[in-house]
């Protein structure tokens, strides 16, 4: 499908291709269903509670908004390099991928299931693309996010690996950012953005002096994928296509990360160290320089292979505990 929309000045315009190969088309530009098709082993995806089940949001009608048959959340099962995995994908084009009652409950159910799967199938991939809570059903969405986090950490305590893949047009903001922080591993592309409060919301609450949301370069180096990867906010960096996310996911699945006291203490040390080392920096450039990047201004334009070399040079072998 050709659903290209104008870009807002993002770095490295996502690759635009007429190719039908879902593995090579832009992840940023793709729909959630296209991403699933490109990520999983060919034809292996089977959906749970698919669109024909018509589990629509009961709340959007009164706001004059048409619903979506899947409520912007596609859940199911598939195979990744032959291994059975559960998958959930948010559709960022539908209401910004925002979490409502049905959308959230589908992920909650999937997370409750993964805990009880056979030991070798205890894996779940979340393809994030969300601005956070859906305001039209804000209370239901907010509580759903808390339920998702509880279910994730129970599943991880039972040995499940939960990976987050971030590179969609809505990014991963609000409660989505908190959910991402509960994953055992995160894969982010340059176009992926991770945060809590979006730049526009900061600007409208705190003024343009605090955060100029129109300054796209500033936005990208503050919340974008390269910055997140460099400071340890994500475990792997992918290029903007399904094949790259796929190989990163296959690799990360080999590094399980159980949720327990030890890993939480290690995460605490990691976050404390980050704050001590970088807490007074006023811009990503200053942070990257402190991390040892020779020419920070080059990072945004750096091609993926060079960026990956940079990351490998700067970071030791220690697993980013989360």
């Amino acid at each position: 499908m050709n659903e290209a929309a104008p870009q807002g000045g993002e770095p490295a315009a996502p690759r635009r291709t007429g190719a039908r190969d879902p593995q090579l088309s832009s992840w940023f530009e793709s729909t959630a269903r296209q991403r699933l098709a490109g990520l999983l082993d060919g034809g292996s995806f089977s959906e749970i509670l698919g669109p024909e089940q018509r589990e629509l949001s009961p709340h959007l009608r009164q706001f004059g908004l048409p619903p979506a048959f899947d409520d912007g959340m596609i859940v199911g099962r598939g195979r990744l390099a032959g291994r059975t995995v559960l998958v959930a994908a948010q559709e960022g084009r539908f209401l910004g991928g925002a979490v409502g009652e049905v959308h959230g409950a589908k992920l909650v159910g999937l997370l409750r299931a993964v805990r009880s799967m056979a030991a070798d199938a205890r894996a779940l991939l979340i393809l994030f693309d969300t601005g956070g809570v859906r305001l039209q059903e804000a209370n239901a969405g907010e509580v759903a996010i808390a339920e998702i986090m509880h279910a994730m950490l129970q599943a991880r305590a039972a040995g499940a690996t939960i990976l987050g893949l971030i590179g969609g047009r809505a990014g991963c903001f609000g409660g989505g950012g908190l959910i991402a922080a509960c994953c055992s591993g995160l894969i982010v592309s340059e176009q992926g953005r991770i945060g809590v409060t979006g730049p526009e919301v900061i600007e409208s609450n705190q003024g343009v002096e605090e955060f100029d949301a129109a300054d796209r370069a500033l936005v990208w180096r503050t919340v974008g994928g390269k910055h997140r990867r460099l400071i340890g906010g994500a475990d792997a960096f992918a290029e903007d296509h399904a094949e790259s996310f796929r190989s990163a996911a296959i690799a990360l699945l080999e590094r399980p990360c159980r949720f327990d006291l030890e890993v939480t203490v290690a995460e605490h040390a990691r976050l404390r160290e980050r704050l001590a080392r970088l807490g007074d920096a006023d811009d990503a450039w200053a942070i990257w320089a402190r991390l040892g990047v020779a020419d920070p201004t080059r990072v945004p334009d750096m091609p993926a292979p060079e960026f990956l070399e940079l990351v490998a040079r700067l970071q030791d072998e220690r697993r980013d505990a989360r």
Binding site: G177, L178, A181, E210, F211
Partner: peptide, 29 residues
């Protein structure tokens, strides 16, 4: 949550998520 560029720059999502995780860990233990 505090709405500032610094908080986002440093990865506020991880810090809020971490606090939630310590409470959920306590519950599990």
């Amino acid at each position: 949550q505090r709405m500032s560029r610094r908080d986002e720059l440093l990865g506020l999502n991880e810090y809020l998520g971490h606090l939630a995780k310590t409470l959920m860990l306590a519950e599990q233990l």
